[in-house]
Design a protein around this nucleic acid. Structure first.
Lengths: 157, 157
DNA sequence: TATTGTTATACTCTATAACTATA
DNA sequence: TATAGTTATAGAGTATAACAATA
């Protein structure tokens, strides 16, 4: 902290990233996430879905009957922020909410047949989208990438 | 699209992600990014920086004299969204803006000595933060991860 | 008292269009 | 007419606290 005044390079081919950011995972992660996320949004839009509603619908189809709070947990989202998502799915007729016996506070979430059908279409779309966006990565590298990312942030902390 | 009614599993150890999201890079990318990004924010806060201001300062220290529009390009940000960032850095005394000769529309960005000093501290903090967050990944895997991410979204598209 | 879902709110990040002053 | 920077604004995404109904 007391040393020299200049440790950074001064000549650049126009457009390279700064040295100090080169070794960090964060910036690379941010760019990749932003690219995939925005592209996924454009893909899902024609289906009437967004990233959040697709993810929620997918979880509900996979675990029919789960509670709203469990959904929030799986999505790594705040309970308060899943309310709108669930309402949107219900309003569109893609899921139903049911009370359970014994505890009238909780809502249970079930996909409708329309919801299941939509989810299958969305799954296919998203798979195709990743095939397109990740064309530079052979399947093996894709799996490796997922493994690395999940070692940083395991699913369902 | 005409086939069966049920292709998803029904028994789960509580807390696993849906099958259809398992093979996708997007969700894993999102979780890792969210975790690193929010943690980076907490790290930088005591220095008076946020992710965006740190990244901008780093670029300016590395390429002193670059234009504001070039900065936006390197940051993959809209020009309009870099205005506030640059103003914040200038107001804090970490950078200066200078006109150039020959074109009075452009601003040139230069770090002050205080800015360089702060940036060195922030670099060290961010390096330490990643060492902590990515403890599960040996350096070799970290480099591999960056390589994979940059094949999806190359720096400075 | 604690918990489930809800409301309200605020803050960050990003995108878009329109403006100014220069060129 | 085009460009650099700016302003204004809108939309996502996320975080927090407080509330009602129920346990």
């Amino acid at each position: 902290m007391t040393a020299g005044t200049e440790s950074r390079g001064t000549d650049h081919e126009a457009g390279s990233a700064p040295l100090s950011l080169r070794g960090l995972v964060g910036p690379a992660l941010k760019r990749a996430h932003h690219l995939l996320h925005s592209e996924a949004g454009r893909c899902l839009e024609p289906l009437g879905l967004r990233g959040a509603t697709y993810a929620a619908l997918s979880v509900i189809c996979d675990r029919p009957g789960l509670r709203q709070g469990e959904l929030a947990g799986v999505l790594s989202a705040e309970r308060s922020n899943t309310v709108g998502t669930v309402e949107a799915l219900e309003a569109a007729g893609w899921i139903e909410r049911r009370r359970i016996e014994g505890d009238r506070r909780v809502w249970t979430l079930l996909p409708t047949e329309a919801g299941r059908s939509l989810c299958r279409r969305a799954d296919a779309l998203m798979q195709a989208q990743e095939d397109r966006m990740l064309a530079a990565l052979p399947p093996r590298d894709r799996a490796r990438l997922i493994t690395l990312l999940e070692r940083i942030a395991p699913p369902e902390g």
